[in-house]
């Protein structure tokens, strides 16, 4: 066998192996696609069967409720500005719940994330413990804590604030500790060499490096928390969600209020989305 023939044989081997691999990959892809489609279809059928109204019956009525609300709001369009002013205090409460819980959550998240980052932790052995604590805080849905706290503390904004703050601590803590891992250790070591305490090293050595990223994540979280606090209000405590629930369960006759609240909520969410998006771009762009 000449060198050239050996080369051709090797190329053919490689080609055959490649074709084999491609075929196998394609087969796996097909199998996964089929499984996925089967899951989606059967899942839809199960969900459809367990729903009070079926999908095909309901799809025709989907615009009925918006139409009722719009037509009633249209008749009483003169009321709308007044109603929107009336609900402004509730909207402010919802925003305050989101603001306070984001701030509280961010403060706790900074502490816990520093304690859970390798190289920065005060007690390196407890890193795993703090990470698990963050995991659990992140896993508990806000509604669970909120409902329990409503039973103990009564209605109002405080249960929602605490519930969202706990979840925020877990969620931001994870993001913050990822940021911390990329921070330069040089300032920390410098501060250590002049005898700074752990708190001083963190405050003066780490925080200035990571503050813009922290802020950007906290803003994104604030956006999410505005939505969460509106939803928690609907389920039972404080803010504009609670007003929405009252107006909504009253039914026809107060749909002008429903429309006013829908509008306020929509405008608020869009405005805060835009503001936070703008500042986040600015901060990340600068960094």
């Amino acid at each position: 066998m000449t060198v050239g023939q050996a080369g051709v044989a090797r190329v053919q081997d490689v080609q055959a192996a490649y074709m084999e691999m491609t075929r196998r990959k394609r087969l796996y892809g097909m199998v996964m696609l089929v499984v996925f489609i089967a899951l989606m279809v059967s899942g839809f059928r199960v969900a459809d069967g367990r729903n009070a109204g079926g999908f095909w019956d309901g799809i025709g009525n989907i615009f009925q409720f918006p139409k009722e609300v719009l037509s009633e709001a249209g008749e009483k369009i003169a009321n709308l500005p007044g109603l929107m002013v009336k609900f402004l205090p509730s909207l402010l409460e919802t925003l305050n719940i989101a603001g306070a819980s984001t701030l509280l959550g961010a403060i706790f998240a900074i502490m816990i994330s520093l304690l859970a980052t390798r190289g920065l932790a005060k007690w390196p052995r407890l890193i795993g413990v703090f990470r698990r604590i963050m995991d659990i805080m992140r896993a508990i849905p806000e509604i669970v804590i909120a409902l329990v706290l409503i039973f103990i503390l009564g209605g109002g904004p405080v249960p929602a604030m605490i519930a969202i703050a706990i979840h925020t601590t877990g969620a931001l803590g994870k993001l913050f500790s990822e940021v911390n891992e990329n921070a330069s250790l040089k300032p920390v070591e410098g501060l250590h060499s002049v005898g700074a305490t752990w708190a001083q090293r963190m405050w003066l050595g780490v925080i200035p490096q990571v503050a813009p990223n922290y802020l950007s994540y906290a803003l994104m979280r604030f956006e999410i928390n505005v939505r969460a606090s509106a939803i928690l209000g609907f389920v039972g405590s404080g803010g504009i969600g609670y007003d929405l629930k009252n107006a909504f369960s009253w039914g026809q006759g107060r749909y002008d209020e429903v429309a006013a609240i829908f509008l306020l909520l929509f405008a608020t969410i869009v405005v805060f989305d835009q503001i936070s998006g703008h500042y986040r771009n600015k901060m990340i762009g600068k960094g």
Binding site: F44, V46, A47, D48, R50, N51, A52, G53, G54, F55, G58, I59, N61, I62, Q64, F65
Partner: peptide, 10 residues
């Protein structure tokens, strides 16, 4: 959606 489809997973 709850108005159109009623309560349930769907």
């Amino acid at each position: 959606l709850a108005r159109a489809f009623g309560p349930g997973p769907l």
